Amino acid sequence: MGRIVMSGPQNVSLDGVVQDPDGAEGFELGGWFPRFGGEDLAEWSKIALEEALRAEAWLLGRKSYEFFGTRWRPRSGELADRINSMPKYVVSSTLDEPDWANSTVLRGEVVSEVAKLKQELDGEIVVPGSHRLGRTLIEADLVDEVRLVVFPVVLGAGERFFGEARGTKSMRLVEAATIGDGLAFLTYEFVQST
């Protein structure tokens, strides 16, 4: 049985904003990710590679699938080669022909399709970005772990990682580490109610 992990790593501002970290979407407060250069991003890249090598597959929403595909398909190197070659599952009702290697479209009802995928695969099924998909999976108790890289910037506005939650979800801190000079890497597991 697979484990669904929200990561990739999942980049958030100190106040929980995940919207437009690289500035490509045109959000007025976007572009906060590249402000942290040098050692911070070099160490971040090491974590991204470790996660990609450990992942059984990626699970993405349509927008994240297109974003990451545009970013990684033309690249090469250890991280790009791993991402391009690993199995990728994209949740979409409109994508007909996926154009990224080893991609499969999940067309049915999201929760049941992902629950079935979780039963079929072993290892980590990583959900990079795709925070809207992640919220749906969290509400359905399908996410096992969340890995956050917290950037020391407060934006004050923007789409947040958890958004409006329906009910309380308890988590347990599994690991906390510092990346570079100022990024926090936090790993949480969901505590399933019995």
Rank of each mutant, 00 (worst) to 15 (best):
T178R: 12
E51A: 02
V12M: 10
D81T: 13
E56C: 11
T187V: 14
E124D: 15
E97P: 04
G129D: 10
F151Q: 04
E159N: 13
A57R: 09
E56L: 02
W100I: 15
S7F: 03
E78N: 09
G167Q: 00
A177R: 15
K116W: 10
M6S: 08
S85M: 05
R160I: 01
E164T: 15
Q10M: 15
L41H: 06
E39R: 15
S64I: 05
L59A: 08
V146H: 01
K118C: 07
G158I: 12
D81F: 09
A80V: 11
Y65A: 12
G69P: 06
G69M: 11
T94F: 07
S112Y: 11
R160G: 07
E175Y: 06
D181I: 02
I125E: 02
F27D: 06
Y188Q: 01
L14T: 08
E56A: 15
W100G: 13
L41I: 11
E120D: 15
G23I: 12
A115P: 02
P74H: 08
E78S: 14
P128I: 11
R160A: 11
A80N: 07
R172Y: 00
D141H: 07
E164S: 14
K46T: 05
S93Q: 14
P128G: 10
V149D: 03
M6P: 04
D81C: 14
K46M: 00
G38H: 09
E25M: 15
Y188G: 02
E159M: 13
F36V: 06
A165N: 05
R62T: 12
V5D: 00
G26E: 00
A55W: 00
F36N: 01
P128Q: 04
R135W: 07
V154T: 12
S130P: 03
Q119M: 14
E164L: 11
Q10V: 13
G77E: 05
T187M: 03
G129S: 11
P87K: 14
V174D: 04
G158F: 03
S193E: 14
A177N: 14
W44V: 02
A57K: 06
L41Q: 10
G167N: 00
E97G: 11
A177H: 10
V153Q: 02
T70V: 05
T178N: 04
H131M: 13
L49K: 11
L95E: 13
S7G: 15
G2A: 15
L121V: 13
L183W: 00
G38L: 01
E175M: 10
D181E: 15
G26L: 04
A52E: 03
L133P: 03
F151P: 00
L183C: 08
P9G: 02
R54W: 00
E39M: 08
R73Y: 08
G16N: 02
V191A: 10
E145D: 01
L183V: 07
A101S: 15
R132Q: 11
G23P: 01
T178F: 06
L95H: 05
G30A: 08
G108E: 09
G158M: 09
V127C: 07
R62D: 11
